[in-house]
Structure formats: structure tokens, C-alpha cells
Amino acid sequence: MKSYFNYFLILILLSLIIISCNTREKNYITYYNKVNEIDSIYRIAQRPKLAIKKFRKLFKEFPPKNQERIEEFENYIYLSDKYQENFGGKKNLYKFITLIAPYRNAYQEHLPLFKKYGIDSLEAAYKTDLWVRSREKVLMDSITTLFIRDQEGKRLDVNISARNDLKNAKLMKWIFDNYGYPSLQKVGIFGNDDVFLPMSTFFSHMSASQDYPYFEKKLKRYLEMGDCTPREYSTMVDRYHLQVLKDKMLYGSYIGIDGISDTIQVNKNRKSVGLPSLKHNNIITKDFLKKINKN
């Protein structure tokens, strides 16, 4: 009887351990670094099949992103299709359509692939429209107001910009409290009336705000949660170091402005927030520009 009781206790403990592992919050900086590692495997080392295998494992561990320029989920799908590997078929293509929905008609360039797996243009457009209509109205009204104010007078009048930055800092805090981070998947790249929403630009303006310590802490947390991107966080911090502290950049976000003397340290800093190395980033950027020019 005692042995059965001990066995029962062991089963309970194992169940609790499994539940704990499944519910523990994932740190997306780990995800971004793994994406960078896998990206270099096929982009630099030219080992696409190994990259596919590692991508598949990663996307089972983390819900995928499709970051600007590096486009990890898109590359996983296309590489898998090219080498006749299973990437999840329609299920993951639907997921991919939702990830690129913020770019509006971006699905159109992928229609040949979608049709190959039984998704026509009407269905892809419908899935995109579902995402558009899923956005919170009050959030969209608020974020649109914020960006209109952010760009008032093209920021040529320092006094007007300073006044607006104070108002926008307060509004962004309210957005954080009520909606969390206004990520690409929550708000997209265009607000009401096609107002452009460049989040990196806005937060770079917060680098001179008296609320910078608050935003630095909050964005770092949102980065770990997978809402804020490494680029959005690092751009704000680098601008603070350049313009407020009059110091060297930590992450090399503005390469054309300030020369980087210690690339080893900068690359360590970049990895700490999920950015690819400077050299790897240059290759990604060149490939991205080639893709744009080709299209």
C-alpha cells in the first residue's frame, strides 16, 4: 500500500513540474538569439536543411514572429517548401497571413505559394481583413492621435515638440496600462486615415523625455515578453546615450552617426537584447534591399 502511495506522489510531482514548465513565461530574447543563429546557418553557412530542422524545433517552443528584414517564419515556410519538408501546411500558412496582415496587401506576393496549398486570393484577403477588424477601436484612436501629435510641424519647432512629447509620454503610459505594448500585431503600421505608425521613431523621441527611465524599463520588459522588438528597444537606448549622455552607443543602431570602435563589446551588447551581430545585420540588410529592388 505504501509503495502505491509513493508512486502516486511521484506522479503528482511530475505533473506539477510539467505544468510549471509549460506555464513559465518565455523570454523572447532567447527566441531572437536562436533566430539569429538559425538565420546565419542558411544565409551565411548555406545549410538550409539544418536551418529548417532548427526552425521547426524553435517554433514548437515559441509562437513565431516574422521580424522585419530577417523574416524568420516566412523563410522557414519557403525553405521547407523548396526542400519538400513539412512546415505545417494550411495551419501555418494561416498563421503567416496573420503575421503579415499589418502590411495590408503583403499576402498578394505569396499567392502562388498559398494556392499550392489550397488557399486562394479571396481567403487570404479575408484572413487579412479579419486581422484589420480585430484591432481595438479606442487603442487605434489613441495611437493615431499620438503619432499625429508626434509629427506636428515635422518636429521643426523645438518648443512644440517638447510640449507634445510630454503629452505623448502620458498617453503612451495610459496605453501600456490599458492595452499593453502597441506592437505590430496589435496596431499595424498604419493607423486611422493611413497615419504612419513607426514605433521606433516615437520611442527614440522618448529618449529625451524625463520619463526615459520608465520607458527603458518597460520596453525591456516588453522585449522579454516578445511584444517590443529588439530594434525598437535598442534605437531608444542608443539615442539616449548619443544625445542625452553624449556617450557611445551600446548597440550600434545609428552606424552612420557615430563610429564603432569596440565592435566586440557592441556585438555582446546586441546579443544581450536579441540583435544579430553587426556583420550579420549588414548581410541581412543587403539581402532585404535586393529583395525590395527585385520586386
Rank of each mutant, 00 (worst) to 15 (best):
M1W: 05
Y4D: 10
F8Y: 11
L11W: 09
L11C: 15
L13P: 01
S20N: 12
C21D: 10
E25R: 05
E25H: 03
E25D: 09
Y28T: 04
I29M: 01
I29N: 02
K34H: 11
S40Q: 15
I41T: 13
Y42P: 04
A45C: 02
Q46Y: 09
Q46E: 15
I52R: 05
K53L: 12
K54R: 11
F59P: 01
P63Y: 08
P63V: 08
P63D: 11
K65N: 12
K65T: 14
N66S: 11
E68P: 02
I70F: 11
I77V: 14
Y78Q: 10
Y83D: 08
E85W: 02
K91C: 03
Y94K: 15
L99M: 14
A101F: 05
P102N: 07
N105T: 10
A106M: 13
A106K: 09
L113F: 12
F114K: 02
K116Q: 07
G118F: 04
D120R: 02
A125W: 01
K127N: 07
D129E: 13
L130C: 08
W131D: 10
R133G: 04
R135D: 04
S142Y: 00
T145M: 10
L146F: 09
F147L: 15
R155E: 07
D157Q: 05
S161E: 10
S161Q: 12
A162F: 06
D165Q: 10
L166E: 10
N168D: 14
M172T: 06
W174A: 09
W174T: 01
I175S: 09
I175R: 03
F176S: 07
Y179K: 02
P182W: 02
I189Q: 09
D194P: 02
V195R: 13
M199G: 01
S200Y: 01
F202S: 06
H205Q: 11
A208T: 03
Q210V: 00
Y222A: 03
L223K: 02
G226F: 11
D227Y: 06
T229K: 07
T235I: 00
T235F: 05
D238T: 03
R239Y: 14
R239A: 03
Y240E: 08
L242G: 03
Q243V: 12
Q243N: 14
V244W: 00
K248D: 13
K248R: 14
S253T: 08
S261Q: 11
T263H: 02
N267E: 09
K268V: 04
N269W: 06
R270G: 13
I283K: 15
I283Y: 11
I284K: 06
D287Y: 13
F288L: 01
L289Y: 08
K291Y: 13
N293S: 13
